[in-house]
Simulated scan of single mutants.
Amino acid sequence: MSARVTMKDIAAELGVSINTVHKALTGKAGVSESVRAKVNDKAEEMGYHRNTSASSLRRKDINLVFCLPCASREGAYFYRYLWEGCNRFEQEVIDQGISIERVEFVVGGYADALEHIDERLQVGEKIDGLLAYVPGDDRATHLLEQIAEAGVAIELVDGDRPHFDRLGASLADYSTAGSLMAEQAANLVHASGADARVLLLAGDPYTDSHYLTARAFHNYLRDHNVPWQVEDLTGAHAQVKQLERELKARLSSSEAPELICSVFAVGSELVADTLVSANKAGEVMVIGNDLFPESALALRRGIFTNIVYKDPVGLAYRGAKTLGDYLLWGKTPADPVQKGAVEMVFASNVDRYCKLAGI
């Protein structure tokens, strides 16, 4: 008896990816009608028969890789909670035949981590799905494209790159985050009667979550005719020392800001530490981003006025669950881009949010 024809065989005959063949044969979006016709014609020619009962239940030997930033050092402020979301998903599927491998990378090491995954695929290792951090440079993007071409289902976390073949993306609503921060900033300044000297720690302009939040902050002020002159301090993890020096200089000047906002977690912690060391805690209004033990403590002590909470635990959990549901049951999300809720945290409700985040 001849061997059963597989999607891999059809892909090899046509010179396309297994993922393309899968989409064509199962009627999913993402391929042109001409490609779909070619795949179906080739499948009929080769005698391919889809096992509908097997496809409805899926294999129980699914291998997932979670590739996210390291949770240590600066990663403890935000990325730790992405991993917590992954932990919660893993506990849910512990008896469902899913094998999960964790790949953590340090700042600047993402492309190297992806290259190693790609090399494993090239030598025949089986990886069904990849929960991947959104790429920030061309090399990481190219490697993710190669991994997708190898037939791996990819779900992005904390951003999106819709131009390549990913299953979907799970991210916070950064536009809402920036607008909410700007609205609360306007409320605080108006209520205090203070002058509007505002300092925005705008983060890394090449990081989606930073750039989009900062842009939305400025757009809100412009659209609502708020006549502030906002000074941006750019820079993120690799520029912490420089940001610290610049922040100290602003605080010690005769025109120190009345309000400081940060679009990212490390910047929020930096603001709290600098205010304490400069003996100015409680003298400046502060809206931080992201909830972690240090920011929650700063809110309780009155160092922060508010915190913008983007629920990284839920963000990663939704991404992992989307990937698992697709590989186990063939379920795809109604909308490939899932945006999580963004909320404003006050001292009065911080305990509730800490409980949700597992802090």
Score class of each variant (00 low, 15 high):
V157T: 13
V157K: 07
D158F: 03
D158M: 05
G159S: 05
G159N: 12
G159A: 10
G159T: 13
G159P: 12
D160C: 03
P162K: 09
P162V: 02
H163R: 06
H163A: 14
F164E: 01
D165P: 01
D165Q: 06
R166A: 12
R166D: 02
R166L: 02
R166W: 02
L167Q: 00
A169T: 02
A169D: 01
S170Y: 07
S170L: 04
L171C: 08
L171R: 03
A172T: 07
A172Y: 00
A172W: 00
D173I: 02
D173H: 10
Y174P: 06
Y174K: 14
T176N: 09
A177W: 03
A177F: 10
A177S: 12
G178L: 10
G178D: 10
G178Y: 05
G178A: 02
S179A: 15
S179H: 10
L180K: 03
L180P: 02
L180G: 02
L180Y: 06
L180C: 03
M181V: 01
M181T: 09
A182D: 01
A182I: 03
E183A: 12
Q184V: 12
A185K: 04
A185M: 13
A185G: 05
A185S: 08
A186Q: 06
A186V: 05
A186H: 08
A186W: 01
N187F: 07
N187L: 08
L188P: 03
V189L: 14
V189I: 14
H190Y: 15
H190Q: 09
A191N: 12
A191D: 14
G193C: 01
G193H: 06
G193A: 10
A194L: 06
A194R: 08
A194T: 12
A194K: 15
D195A: 15
D195T: 09
A196N: 14
A196D: 12
R197I: 12
R197K: 11
R197N: 15
L199H: 02
L200M: 00
L200V: 01
L201Q: 03
L201K: 05
L201W: 05
L201S: 05
D204N: 14
P205D: 03
Y206P: 08
T207F: 15
D208P: 07
S209D: 00
S209K: 02
H210T: 10
Y211R: 13
L212N: 13
L212T: 08
L212Q: 15
L212W: 09
T213Y: 11
A214P: 02
A214C: 13
A214M: 13
A214Y: 04
R215L: 10
R215E: 14
A216E: 05
F217Y: 14
F217I: 08
H218W: 13
N219I: 13
Y220K: 00
L221S: 09
L221R: 09
L221P: 08
R222V: 11
D223L: 07
D223P: 00
H224R: 11
P227Q: 05
W228H: 01
W228R: 04
Q229N: 09
Q229V: 15
V230I: 09
V230T: 12
E231R: 07
D232R: 01
L233A: 11
L233C: 08
G235Y: 13
G235F: 06
A236V: 01
H237M: 06
H237P: 00
A238S: 09
A238F: 04
A238Q: 09
A238G: 06
Q239W: 01
Q239E: 15
V240W: 11
V240L: 11
